[in-house]
Design a protein around this nucleic acid. Structure first.
Lengths: 241, 241
DNA sequence: GCAAAAGTGTTCTCGGTACACCCATGC
DNA sequence: GCATGGGTGTACCGAGAACACTTTTGC
């Protein structure tokens, strides 16, 4: 046991990759660090996990401190534990990603660690401190994957949205272009959208219909063995010898 | 900083779910614990991560201590950190899973922690100690998923195998039945198998052809954007209103 | 009336599914 | 010769892909 005690000298943290979607662009919420290390740098929100706190709980707490909200999509992605990833000692971090509707919530930070929080375009980020770039990349990959197999995209959109908005979201995440008619046909054929019989107002073109995602129906279909699945954009691979 | 030191009191471990395939059955390698807690119980092999050791390295080390082998498929799956999951204190564990060819290696344990190691049928296990059942389930789910989208099944088979063996492997992992002709058509159409022009010997029926997996070709196709994909067994879902 | 985005249908191709019989070997 | 698993082909169907023009609104 005395020997074992040598192992109880590590710390662990959670880091949250919080995705949002705005102006046709996929964003991630970063904080300006108020403490060392990397004081004043933009980084992923995260904090130590308290001794009596489960991992998921810690991730929820960090998310709530950042955004003031609960009950959003949140899922563990991967754990990063390179020996020297943190200058203060051995700290491994469990990365979570979450999806929120940017418009629904004013981002607020009640944490002393963070001076302020701000949305940044995922595609423009590089060289985040610690191994946060690697963490972000891993979460983005996971999102890319997940969006094709689970209807999580709706977590990023307002409750009411147009099909074009939905398509742009998919295009931003998958980093590809989708064909309008086929996309609409596929999405509508799943019967997971409720047509609200409302239209946009005040737009300088033909106003689009508004839809909402039918979560109850999805869950019922899931139980029946339904598989949500969206193919990627362009056709690839021709002529395998 | 003094306050921060309160966080550096945790330990973390890796646990390995080592899958193998034998006699048409998916197996997992368990050790009989030689130490407390849960002494003499069958459990997943795992150990503390050393202070100067990366996570992946630790997972490889544990695997090597168990099986004496290196260079097998090994991937991080999920981290488990419930507050009371370990009786000795706050210990979070990073779960890895790996795939090995049972016949290639004599399982040997050089670890003091493990009295002996043995293969157990995945389907028959329940109530493993700690949260190991949950870990095993998560890894099995991951394997089920992965086997459909990456040609990892071959890691579990001998270098030379028959198509029927391959099919049985998929059936065991996916827990479903597959239709022989369609399975063969699909697999062969991928052009990822090399026909060895050899046949089984000493079997009391028409001997089957032997194949091997063409790893180089797969990697080359991957680079060209090829997607390995296998559908699940039975057709599901009829009549979405 | 013009700019800007919404909305819509058909044809073709490919891959998945369903399904039943003959073949080679050991004993 | 019989038991055992190996091996094969075809017809049908549904989903994805390609593709261009009309509609509705604000200004």
């Amino acid at each position: 046991m005395t020997e074992l005690n040598n192992f109880f000298k590590s710390a662990f943290t959670v880091d949250n990759v919080i995705f949002g979607f705005d102006e046709g662009d996929l964003k991630v919420l970063l904080i300006k660090r108020g403490e060392e290390p990397f004081k004043n740098r933009w980084a992923l929100p995260g904090y130590f996990v308290y001794p009596n706190e489960d991992l998921d709980t810690a991730a929820k707490r960090v998310l709530e401190e950042m955004t003031g909200i609960r009950n959003v999509f949140l899922e563990q992605v991967k754990t990063f534990g390179a020996v020297n990833r943190h200058p203060f000692g051995r700290v491994i971090t469990v990365a979570y990603f979450s999806l929120i509707r940017i418009d629904n919530y004013e981002v607020q930070t009640s944490s002393a660690v963070a001076r302020k929080a701000e949305w940044h375009s995922v595609s423009k980020l590089k060289n985040l401190p610690f191994d946060h770039q690697e963490i972000l990349d891993a979460c983005f990959q996971r999102l890319k994957w997940m969006v094709r197999y689970r209807p999580v995209g709706f977590e990023l959109l307002p409750n009411k949205f147009t099909l074009t908005e939905l398509q742009h979201l998919y295009e931003a995440i998958l980093e590809t272009e989708l064909e309008k008619r086929n996309f609409r046909k596929k999405i509508l054929s799943m019967n997971l959208l409720i047509d609200l019989d409302e239209t946009q107002e005040g737009v300088a073109h033909r106003p689009a219909r508004l839809y909402k995602f039918d979560k109850d129906k999805y869950e019922q279909l899931l139980a029946d063995g339904f598989n949500f699945e969206l193919k990627e954009g362009k056709k690839k691979m021709e002529g395998v010898s």
